[in-house]
Simulated assay, not measured.
Amino acid sequence: MKHPQRQQGFVLVTALIFLIVLSTLGVMALRGSLFEERMASNDRDRALAREYAEMALRDAERDILGLRFDGQFCATAGCATLRPDGTRPKTTADANFWGIDSATNPEAAFVDGGRTQALNMQGVYNADAATNCGMPVWSGANWEDAAAPARACTGTINAAVPTVPYGRFTNAPFAAPQGIPAPRYLIEVFAGPTLLSSSTSKVFFRITAVGFGRTTGPAGRTSVTLQSVFSPL
């Protein structure tokens, strides 16, 4: 009698190999999709943070001009927090308010941004601030973004210096989506002769603004930093 031939299992082995290959391809495709989704989410998060930083730049300009978010003067229309009297324009008659005298007013700008002063005096730095901070002022400022390690000035200040949240001096509303904190800014004041070595009466403001996104990590929250130079005249 003839014995039946033993099965070698070739078809089973081939099927298993195809199954492994298909599973690998599926996993790779899934990982690629997840990676692209993360990239898209990060791009959107940074775009959102940049938009908020731009809002903070405009808010700082209104702060300098003594205006509310709706274009009215805080001194007459009212704002929740007012800058000290004599440090901001009050009416359209103050079109030439910002000159050398205003820029060097000791109550208008501080070497440490008014770190130990009342809230309405904080966030504005004079031309000596960077020297006393031992670094650019924005590098030693507290942006309240849970940065790790925490930022702080060195030099004679040797502490974190303050920043201003969006809307504090302009009453501008900020409805934070998904718990995103309000953007923040700081202002540095420079009299024209300091920068231009001339007798100009112009005053320049360097505004640094930071907007935040949704994502947080070990180093802090996603953020975008923007700067602009502004002169009211």
Rank of each mutant, 00 (worst) to 15 (best):
T116L: 13
A118Y: 03
A118Q: 11
N120V: 00
N120H: 00
N120P: 01
M121Q: 14
Q122F: 03
G123H: 00
Y125G: 11
N126D: 10
N126C: 04
A129S: 14
T131M: 10
N132I: 06
G134K: 05
G134P: 10
S139T: 15
A141N: 09
A141L: 03
N142F: 05
W143Y: 08
E144H: 14
E144Q: 14
D145T: 02
A146H: 15
A146S: 14
A147G: 09
A147N: 14
R151T: 14
A152H: 11
A152E: 11
A152R: 15
C153K: 09
C153H: 12
T154R: 08
G155A: 03
A160N: 02
T163V: 11
P165R: 13
P165K: 10
Y166H: 04
F169M: 07
T170E: 03
N171M: 12
P173Q: 08
A176V: 11
P177C: 05
Q178H: 08
G179N: 05
P183I: 09
R184D: 01
L186V: 08
L186P: 06
I187Y: 00
I187E: 01
E188S: 13
A191W: 11
G192S: 05
P193S: 03
T194K: 11
T194D: 12
S197C: 07
S198G: 09
S198W: 00
S199V: 12
V203Y: 03
F205I: 06
F205A: 10
F205G: 05
T208P: 01
T208F: 13
A209M: 05
G211R: 02
G211K: 00
R214G: 04
R214P: 04
R214F: 06
R214D: 10
T216G: 08
P218N: 13
R221N: 01
R221H: 09
S223P: 13
V224H: 04
V224P: 05
